[in-house]
Design a protein around this nucleic acid. Structure first.
Lengths: 145, 145
DNA sequence: ATGTGTGCAAAAGCTTTGCATGGAC
DNA sequence: GTCCATGCAAAGCTTTTGCACACAT
């Protein structure tokens, strides 16, 4: 079940609630519940197609762009060149630990807020909007030593 | 002039020193001197062509991949989807402040080392290799308020 | 009824690859 | 002489766009 929170937010934002969008939201929600592994557009399409076979990849891209613009999802860019998305859970903020072998992503709760504040002070004419912090390496299964 | 350091390193690594590679190294070096604005492959090609007109984009990509593998350059991935590169200056480490309007990049000296150490301890079975930390926002020219 | 969202197909970026030739060592 | 690097052309992969039709409001 998609929590009403998101549906209300979309309505409030004036975003039309089509079946495709509901299914995409559902997939993002399920991902957030089960470990928080971010998804890319291709994966979203595959998941949605199990329940809504007609959806096109274009719609997924357009919906994810809309959701990003409205602050419903976060767009992530790791080293692997394909964009990934995760649902924004309000009051929650995290970064990522990414395995260079298998691509497994794990959330990390720590955030370099102190540095961001220092940068905000040092570069007062720069208006900070967002930041990304990602640690790369090899997980227990992929490390060689 | 390219400092001998890089030429020696390439020789030591067994990387053949072709005129194309020397010119690419030259461009990266000049960039590092003049503000540290990272370059993408297209820009490298354009700069090199002023002095070595025949160079192809493929060669630039292949050379940048080789330099990255050998630790001569850092490959950066910002939100704009094109990979950028910067020369690795030994003993130097920094992160980036990126303008979402014009794409201007500024180096920031602070690094969240404390967090990386904490993560190294908390996730002892994960072998940390590298990390990226980028702050996005709008520079004085691009900000609207 | 209106305007936005969707699917299709095609295109657009950026990056990679196969192959024959040329050049560094 | 050997093997790697290069240029060319073509392909690959992800993402975007134009258009006509369908649908949410």
């Amino acid at each position: 079940m998609i929590p009403g929170e998101f549906l209300k937010r979309l309505k409030r934002l004036g975003v039309r609630l089509t079946p495709q969008r509901q299914e995409i939201l559902q997939v993002l929600w399920e991902r957030a519940q089960s470990g928080g592994q971010p998804v890319n557009a291709e994966e979203v399409m595959k998941c949605v197609r199990t329940r809504y076979p007609g959806i096109s990849l274009d719609t997924v891209y357009r919906t994810l762009a809309t959701f990003t613009r409205e602050g419903i999802v976060n767009e992530l860019q790791f080293k692997d060149q394909s964009r990934r998305y995760e649902l924004v859970i309000q009051g929650e903020h995290h970064h990522h630990l990414v395995c260079l072998g298998c691509g497994y992503v794990r959330e990390i709760a720590y955030c370099p807020e102190d540095i961001i504040e220092r940068v905000r002070e040092s570069y007062a004419d720069f208006k900070i909007e967002e930041h990304s912090f990602t640690i790369y390496g090899y997980c227990a299964q992929c490390r060689e030593d």
